[in-house]
Design a binder for these strands. Sequence first.
DNA 1: TTGTACGCGTTATCAT
DNA 2: ATGATAACGCGTACAA
Lengths: 334, 334
Amino acid sequence: MVTMSDVARLAGVSTMTVSNVVNDRSGVSDTVRERVRRAIAESGYRMNVSARNLRSGASGVIGLAVPELNRPYFGALAARVTQWARKHGYRVVVEETGARVEGEIAAIQLSHALDYDGLLLSPVGLDLERELVRAGSRPLVVLGERPAPSGYDHVALPNSEGTEAVTRLLLERGARRVALVRGRSGSGEDMLSLRHKGYRRALDAAGLTAAPELLLEIGPLDMASGREAAHRALDSGLDADAFFAVTDTVAFGVIRGLADRGVRVPDDVLVAGFDDLEESEYFVPSLTSVSPDLDWTAQHAVELLLARVRGEGGPSGRIVAPFDVVERESTRGR
Amino acid sequence: MVTMSDVARLAGVSTMTVSNVVNDRSGVSDTVRERVRRAIAESGYRMNVSARNLRSGASGVIGLAVPELNRPYFGALAARVTQWARKHGYRVVVEETGARVEGEIAAIQLSHALDYDGLLLSPVGLDLERELVRAGSRPLVVLGERPAPSGYDHVALPNSEGTEAVTRLLLERGARRVALVRGRSGSGEDMLSLRHKGYRRALDAAGLTAAPELLLEIGPLDMASGREAAHRALDSGLDADAFFAVTDTVAFGVIRGLADRGVRVPDDVLVAGFDDLEESEYFVPSLTSVSPDLDWTAQHAVELLLARVRGEGGPSGRIVAPFDVVERESTRGR
DNA sequence: TTGTACGCGTTATCAT
DNA sequence: ATGATAACGCGTACAA
């Protein structure tokens, strides 16, 4: 292995000068800089990351904890986060929380045990407040759905705004009884409640009321749950003319469940979702959805986190990703 | 930060003894071991990964390079690989190659630049042979589709076996003119050729011949391509009674394309794919597919790689993942 | 069974 | 502008 002192000897300078050249620091004359550059190229030298990390007290790694990596939304997010982090010289280690509280706690603990410089956490169920205080002090940015405990930065999705917009679209397309397929939520500020709020606001604005029987509660936000919800709704004779599902994944399940009972979308009922997965464009029927700007989200999350890692203070903030509503077959006649 | 010497002082022993306890090495009396354990707990000591890596000359990181992380198949794979690697004390850094040769080359180079201990590469287009020789010597295990250059381990999918089995199923369900939707391939040993071979074997065994017009070539293996392929087939009047698409993702596109033209699955034609994505169960119609054992694949890939990392020699090998054929609506009447 | 001294490759500090 | 030296925290070799 070629070390800095090898390069230094080769170039006839000190290791410190080599270090200064490698890290693009000022205070090195152009001639020396050039000489060192050549020595580096000739010797095939590469910086030893571990040594630098040891010296600097950092690991150069940030963690990204998402509920499930095999959901395209999070896969795409992970890819974007990785790219942005690399731009800043950091590696990203991705973890799954399994969408369970224990998984989220484990991710936080792992961020200590594995010595991450910071953690990007996309929580689902966790009431972070308590755990964070206990688990401690690694820089943390909360991503997506849940509200962040105070003192932490939060890159939020346009939960209520996006939902309001897409619900409004359903109403414009003639729906009057829009069912809401959502998970069970605890407190009043999580992703589910926020989307619920957007839904209600759109109805209110149209002078409609949200009938309680139109609220369909499900467990996990997956396709199986969406399918069952559709089954329950139809079997109990619910006369909804549209379904808004809190995620596209759930919406796929709903459409599937409707198909199981011979209900056609959009001929018989309309359906819309949230996330704009790649699949949404190809599903039969293709799915109308709220499309948050993923790349924007990834970029801002990474940069907020790295600012914290660098110890740049400032009060913690909350920013909301921009979004579009993409209309497809599931809300319009063919 | 609490270091080993802090713990040593607290426990009244030497740092070496602490190191031995931390790493579960023998040669420490039970009483001392217990005393050290307590000191660790009290002080909140945690090993410094960078220091250990510096000392041991390794980074404790392995890379996983996949074509696209937002395809559920690779997301699921990444999750499994991460889990198995962690069991062995390694971190996984995931990268996207974008399913392009340059991306694959970049991943190999990055595995040097970023000092990974090894790389798990799931190549698509790359003719690895040449690049690997140039890029050099990091332990590498090839995953999935393409055949590995000699000298490297390869965890392969049951490409021809799985395809043969599912094609046989299509024939058993009454199909006689099975269209094959596949990408363009170069040489004779890549994933596409292997799946093609399995397809042909099944037809041969049934005494059928693979009519050339039944071969539908596409570009990238995505939904858009599948959809176009279906359009082209129908618009040119192809009288296929079944489609086998080389991946589930492509199959989704095919079904979508058939739906665009009012062709019903499975009533008018049968469709089957390969990968058994989670979505496949919920698509309308649900998709019959070859289901390779992902967890098995991840485990064996990680363990082969780590064996190389540890310098355990042995000749390079090639192992094939087990699989099932999962039959769903797309190949049977409702 | 336990302790001591030194080195891993890099960078901060202080000199020159 | 450049160089010498001492850390960073851990593990190895060897001594006790």
